[in-house]
Amino acid sequence: MSRSDSHTHTLGVDLRLVPTDTVTESDRVTHIDQLSEQAQETIFSRVCCGSQRTQQLLTETEELHRGDILVFTDYFELR
């Protein structure tokens, strides 16, 4: 179940990070440290604390798929 949309972060044109409380056995879960430096930078910039000068839009990649759960300062679902 996702939480308030006020904590949703837009990563790309049609990709968002939505806080979630639920992880199931079938979910793919990724920790922020597993991502490339570029993906980390984008997520830092969108979620909390990255340089606005370097942020880039993210799309679905080998490392981030729609439906994945990302572990950072919270658990986020990629939608």
Binding site: H31, I32, D33, Q40, F44, C48, C49, V71, T73
Partner: peptide, 11 residues
């Protein structure tokens, strides 16, 4: 290298 701690409200 980089290493994150993700236990708290702040990064």
């Amino acid at each position: 290298s980089s290493y994150s701690i993700t236990h708290f409200d702040f990064p």
